Amino acid sequence: MSKLKDKRREKTSVASEIDRLEERRTRCHDNLERAEFKSRKEQLSERERQELEDEMGIMNERVQKLDKELKTLRGENRRNMVLSVALLAISALVYYMFVYMEEDS
């Protein structure tokens, strides 16, 4: 199953992967806020409160994991952007040199 996910992710762009992870992070964060609100406003038994705190701990770990993945993907996206700009600049320089070399001849 993991290999299938990796192959699927290889076919997606970095930007779409960032969007997908941000959406998942937002959903996890919303669920975490709902759980925190529930723990403050409702009268819960000790067992229910412990289960809710365990669930909140799991959600916090997920949010942290997603933040780490997002940081990595944003770095990769930044690196790709710099490479694209560098290639554009080199292409423009070659074109500029080609045009002015033709005029001088």
Rank of each mutant, 00 (worst) to 15 (best):
D19P: 05
V63G: 00
R24Y: 04
R74G: 05
M56Q: 15
L93D: 10
L70V: 02
M81F: 04
A86M: 06
E103P: 02
E76C: 02
K11D: 09
N31G: 06
G57M: 11
I90S: 15
K11T: 00
L70E: 06
V85E: 14
E22K: 14
L70T: 00
S2K: 13
V85Q: 07
K41C: 12
S2M: 12
R34N: 13
K7D: 11
L87T: 13
K38Q: 11
D30C: 03
K3W: 12
L66D: 07
M81N: 03
L73D: 01
K65H: 08
N80M: 09
A89T: 15
A15Q: 11
E69V: 02
D19V: 01
F98R: 01
M97E: 14
T12R: 13
L21V: 06
E17Y: 02
N60S: 12
R78Y: 01
L93M: 11
A15W: 02
S105D: 14
S16A: 10
F37G: 06
G75K: 04
L44S: 06
M81K: 03
S91C: 10
E103I: 01
I18Q: 10
E102Q: 07
V94T: 09
V63I: 15
A15K: 12
L52V: 06
E102P: 02
L93G: 09
K38H: 12
L93N: 08
E55I: 00
H29K: 06
L32F: 12
A92Q: 10
R62L: 12
K7Y: 12
E36N: 08
E48T: 02
R78T: 02
Y95Q: 01
M81E: 02
E53M: 10
D67C: 03
R34F: 03
E53Q: 15
G75P: 00
L70F: 01
K11M: 13
L66T: 03
C28M: 11
M56K: 15
S2H: 13
L4A: 09
E33D: 09
I90T: 15
V94H: 05
D19T: 00
S2W: 14
Y100I: 07
S105L: 15
K68V: 00
Q64E: 12
L70M: 07
L66E: 11
E17P: 02
K71T: 09
D19W: 01
D30F: 01
K65F: 00
M59G: 04
T72I: 11
R49M: 06
S39C: 09
R49W: 03
R27P: 00
E69Q: 06
R25V: 11
V99M: 10
F98K: 01
G75F: 01
S91F: 11
V85M: 07
M56R: 15
E55Q: 15
E48F: 08
A89D: 14
